[in-house]
Write a protein that binds this DNA or RNA. Structure first.
Length: 494
DNA sequence: GCGATCAGCT
DNA sequence: CACAGCTGATCGC
């Protein structure tokens, strides 16, 4: 995922998504720092971004620099970049006029699968970066000139190339001739639709199929790349690697002609397998664009295998005690298939999913999964439902349909993580939410790296520079993450 | 009228 | 908390 949640001080940026440089021009009034020199300075520096302060600007960081060093490093840096508090005079004037959204969605029984919605109900309509971070101000959400369109943020652009990653919601990006898509989740493909015409889209074969099937993008723009194969695109060697996230998700490795090497993780869950991958094992990485979703020590969760084992164990127990139990697994779009597949295999039952979901699941070309699907809910006690319907009321209503066959409902909500200080790694401490004959388990089946997995990956890769791509909405978060990276690499080296 | 985008919410 | 959206309202065309 990629989102910004916290508030951010208002910051100004240029049209490239780089923070705008508004240096006090005491020399001659003209700012001579060209955009690319700024960009290259940015990318040249290591994980210690503060080196930019010294090399580029000395005037704006003179006072109180020495005592609060740690705290002010990035603050000063961002100040240097023009990340100053500025008045947000450019507020979208129309937004103030909009009537407040009453959001009174009590019970909407209207059916919604009849329209041309691409896949599991409606899948492309909203935009997380937009609404979760509108107060980022123009910072990471820059707008181009007066228009309402945001500019592509700098960390989605691969320096030294004409490539961007997961940057479809910015219209035509100047200087971008190839658009990479790391995986098929809304917050990454947002902006892609039938009318896309801004350039070729490079992605894995599975993602390519989904882009065509679900978004109806013109196939002439879709360029599937096999995993683990080196392609040369505009003089840059590119390889997609398995990301261990959702089906079709990839890491993207860029080998520039000048020898520089960049790795973009998209969304991923770091694993030991990645460390033995021949293309990563002995590869010096200059810049790592890192999925930092759980880059905080409070996020400790078990391996996928442990969670699957737990889910299977619970399912078996329920069936044993209550043979007439309907098992429901929640899922949104793609991802977490293993949860219901594991139950299906353990209990020897088929998996029911609605037609649109089946279409998507079949498109993976994963025969084990395809073979386990069935199209009639009456034929199996294992159902996949949208995660939004995993609530007591909804499940109760749903089970009414099958009341002849089932007297109880056991539901699993693989929420990525279920936070509980005490639970931690110990799955057995997970308490289900039960009401009547409906039981809902939240299980920490994550498709992002845990804090420790992230640390291990970073220490393995030893990239010169790390650019986090998630939770970067506040300078406090950015500072915190950079200091983790520094510690991880310092302790490892010395 | 349609697709895209918005705020609010989970 | 924050996963990866969902929903209804509104905007631009």
């Amino acid at each position: 995922m990629e989102n910004f949640t916290d508030e951010e001080e208002a910051i100004s940026v240029d049209e490239e998504g780089f923070p705008s440089l508004q240096l006090p021009s005491e020399k001659d009034g003209s700012i001579e720092v060209a955009e690319d020199s700024f960009a290259s300075d940015f990318y040249r520096c290591g994980t210690d971004w503060s080196c930019l302060v010294e090399t580029t600007d000395k005037s704006s960081e003179n006072h109180s620099h020495h005592h609060h060093q740690k705290k002010l490093k990035q603050t000063n840096l961002f100040q240097m970049w023009g990340f100053n508090k500025v008045e947000d005079t450019n507020v979208d004037s129309t937004s103030a006029l909009r009537s407040p959204n009453e959001a009174n969605a009590i019970y909407n029984t209207k059916k919604k699968n009849n329209s041309k919605r691409p896949m599991l109900g409606s899948i492309h309509q909203n935009d997380k970066e937009n609404h979760n971070a509108p107060r980022l101000g123009p910072a990471m959400n820059p707008r181009i000139g007066d228009s309402k369109r945001r500019a592509c943020p700098f960390y989605k652009k691969i320096p030294g190339t004409t490539f961007t990653v997961d940057a479809f919601r910015y219209g035509l990006i100047e200087g971008c001739s190839s658009y990479f898509l790391s995986h098929f989740h809304y917050d990454h493909y947002g902006g892609l639709s039938k009318g896309w015409s801004h350039g070729p889209i490079y992605c894995s074969p599975i993602t390519a199929r989904l882009v065509r099937m679900c978004l109806l993008v013109n196939p002439s723009f879709i360029r599937p790349l096999e995993l683990d194969i080196e392609y040369v695109i505009e003089g840059v060697k590119v390889v997609l690697l398995e990301a261990n996230h959702c089906p079709g998700a990839t890491l993207i490795l860029f080998h520039l002609a000048d020898g520089r090497c960049y790795l973009h993780t998209g969304d991923f869950r770091a694993s030991k397998m990645m460390q033995s991958h021949p293309l990563l094992a002995n590869q010096h990485i200059n810049v790592l664009y890192l999925d930092t979703t759980y880059c905080n020590p409070k996020y400790k969760f078990p391996s996928k295998e442990d969670v699957l084992e737990f889910v299977v164990k619970i399912s078996r127990n329920y069936i044993k005690n209550q043979p007439k139990t309907l098992i429901v697994v929640g899922a949104y779009s793609i991802g977490k298939e293993c949860v219901y597949l594991a139950i299906s295999k353990a209990l020897g039952v088929k998996i029911y999913a609605n037609a649109s979901r089946r279409r998507v699941l079949h498109s993976f070309g994963w025969s084990e999964l395809s073979g386990g699907l069935c199209s009639r809910g009456e034929d199996t006690p294992l159902h996949v439902l949208p995660i939004s319907s995993l609530r007591h009321e909804t499940l109760k209503k749903y089970s009414e349909t099958y009341k002849r066959q089932y007297t109880a409902v056991l539901a699993f909500r693989p929420t990525g993580w279920t936070y509980s200080e005490t639970t931690g790694n110990q799955l057995d401490l997970i308490k289900p939410n039960s009401r009547g004959n409906i039981t809902i388990y939240g299980v920490p089946y994550s498709e992002h790296s845990s804090f420790l997995e992230l640390r291990e990956f970073v220490q393995f890769l030893k990239a010169d520079k790390i650019i986090p791509t998630v939770n970067i909405g506040t300078s406090a978060n950015r500072d915190k993450m950079q200091s983790y990276f520094q510690n991880w690499l310092r302790l490892k080296d010395s």
